[in-house]
Nucleic acid binder design. Structure first.
Lengths: 342, 342
DNA sequence: TGCTCGATTGGAAGCGATTCCAATCACATC
DNA sequence: GATGTGATTGGAATCGCTTCCAATCGAGCA
């Protein structure tokens, strides 16, 4: 019952401490009989290594951190980050790593930042950051700790990354609207400080250009990925741009806010106006009307990031790598054929 | 730059290793001058203790775990757990503890369960579990590791818990409907295996009884806290119970699904049917129509749980404690006066 | 001055693993 | 029978810290 240590295991198994360690770590040079004896004792006493001692001696923690910005708070509240985290967790579990999830913010006291970044010697870090990316990255770089970025930042091409192809995703979303006959298509994106937002906006532009439609900078609204900003932006744009018949929203959350604003204003979706979102969060199927959107593999993103960081830590891979997962268009009911087109 | 250890700090500060340790741990019996010298060196070299060594020597990890059931997956995807986790994290940060978030499921391989529960010697565990509560609790009990439950379970009264007052919350939600003149009020709750669901249903019953309304067991629908189940349940109940003019949904997610179903069926909310939710998740303000619901302090729940477990670990408190946080009714637009009442 | 007592300080023994290195062993070869 | 080889094994150092214990120091008091 009570905790037992490696020496006791060794004693009970009539072998030395070293042999026990080798068995537990699957090292070679252990006879079958010794291995058997050790395993029996381990099973019998339900022995588990002390991870602190293990980390100290082995000089690695077998632990990675996933660092999010605290102000991704709003993004968080939509289950995006939980799903991402689940992916990370399950990949790590499979590889017997553990994960420490942390939040950091620029306005956080210096001491806490230090505590988070320094107190724990993590073997690697997954960055799910936003505008503080540079700051964090710089700190991590100086500590020479392997990192993987969720999303990507051209300025940090030295750090591996996993992202969804935002460009082609938004491009196909907008192309969908074009196919339905829309010519006046607005865009509601996030802060252009974020690479992700830039890419989604670029995809929008590309789709329009491909269709021979001039881009109207006036109908590009900047939100912040919250339902609230989607609502507010839509409310203010609605009367200024009555000619717009379809909006590309760079996230389902903003799309949801937009939907609420449209309903409040008496517009019908998709009758009067079409809406397409991005992410395919779990609620997208239950908005009114159900949201046509771009599905991105969030869970996979997490697993992928975890796999990359572990490969890096274990030395299995050394070069930086930029993964770009493919998104899919999922058609539901929020987009309709343009009224002028029959 | 490169990592420095306690011996080097001691050397540079012209004191012994012990003094450095005392300074770092705020122990008494250190002269001001010694403290000052040590701190200067610490700052200069940006020294941080090695947490593995610290844990090993001090025999505590200064780390707690938050354990969720994997199949709370759907609950997760609504930001509930992220917000809860944020509360836990920030309280722990303030107290210089770290958190390890983990998921566990009943169908998980035994080895993984062991890895999660045993490999890491956590000082305490916060349980955010559902039906596997007993299993987990039993395992934890045998390891004699302090635990705090999010929610509560009468069978586990030996474990401290933090919960929202589900009973009074749902009671006030339903009373609100009664005040609006509704007499035929349905309930859509979660699995009755969950204490939380039982309490929310009990609150519903209480409100009806208080109002002198007979409880009709036929209009109590059991869902599973997902949008999908809210949608499905509402679809099937709608025609079977046309007399019901208002529904109490035990979660915003189910309420959202119900709203979608009502819209699909051409019913108007709140014109034809009123809906009240529970939780006040961030999207509740942007459903169509905006959802009247019961707000529960999710973040506070997390902080509170963390505080309790840390108090327990540090020995500041020893007796078990059951906290019950108060929820609030937040009135938006999904409930209307019963048509028959003028 | 000599002594006591409390505040500081340094020395050293762990904490529980990993891992290097040397010792042992079994066995084939000469 | 002596020797070389490779597979096993045990011994011991080490990781970086906490903490007990004994030593030292300095002020207050008789």
């Amino acid at each position: 019952m009570s905790k037992i240590n490696i020496d006791q295991v060794a004693r009970y198994a009539f072998v030395s401490r070293s042999v026990v360690s080798r068995v537990l770590n699957n090292h070679p040079h252990v006879s079958d009989v010794a291995r058997e004896r050790v395993m029996n004792v381990v099973r019998k006493y339900n022995y588990q290594r002390n991870s602190a001692a293990r980390s100290l001696a082995a000089k690695n923690m077998r632990e990675i951190g996933i660092l999010s910005t605290r102000n991704a708070n709003d993004v968080m509240s939509n289950g995006f980050s939980t799903l991402l985290y689940l992916g990370v967790f399950e990949e790590c579990l499979a590889q017997r790593y553990s994960v420490r999830q942390m939040f950091i913010s620029t306005d956080m006291k210096e001491e806490f930042q230090k505590f988070i970044l320094n107190e724990h010697t993590l073997d690697g870090v997954i960055l799910f950051a936003e505008e503080v990316t540079d700051l964090l990255a710089a700190k991590l770089m100086t500590r020479e700790i392997p990192a993987v970025l969720i999303g990507h930042a051209p300025g940090l091409s030295g750090i591996s990354s996993v992202d969804v192809d935002n460009f082609s995703g938004s491009c196909s979303a907008v192309s969908h609207l074009v196919r339905l006959g829309h010519r006046n298509i607005g865009a509601m994106v996030g802060s252009q400080l974020l690479q992700e937002s830039q890419d989604r906006l670029a995809g929008y532009r590309k789709a329009l250009v491909d269709a021979g439609i001039a881009v109207n900078e006036d109908v590009i609204a900047i939100g912040d990925y919250t339902q609230r900003s989607g609502y507010d932006q839509m409310m203010s744009r609605l009367r200024r741009h009555p000619e717009v018949t379809a909006w590309f929203c760079a996230s389902d959350t903003m799309a949801m806010g937009a939907l609420a604003a449209l309903h409040k204003s008496g517009r019908r979706v998709p009758g009067d106006i079409s809406i397409v979102g991005f992410d395919d969060l779990s609620f997208a199927r239950y908005t009114i009307p159900p949201l046509t959107t771009i599905r991105q593999p969030i869970y996979q993103k997490g697993r992928c990031a975890a796999r990359m960081i572990i490969d890096r830590i274990s030395g299995k891979k050394t070069e930086v790598e930029h993964r770009n997962l493919k998104p899919d268009l999922v058609i539901r009911e929020s987009c309709g054929r343009h009224a002028g087109v029959l």
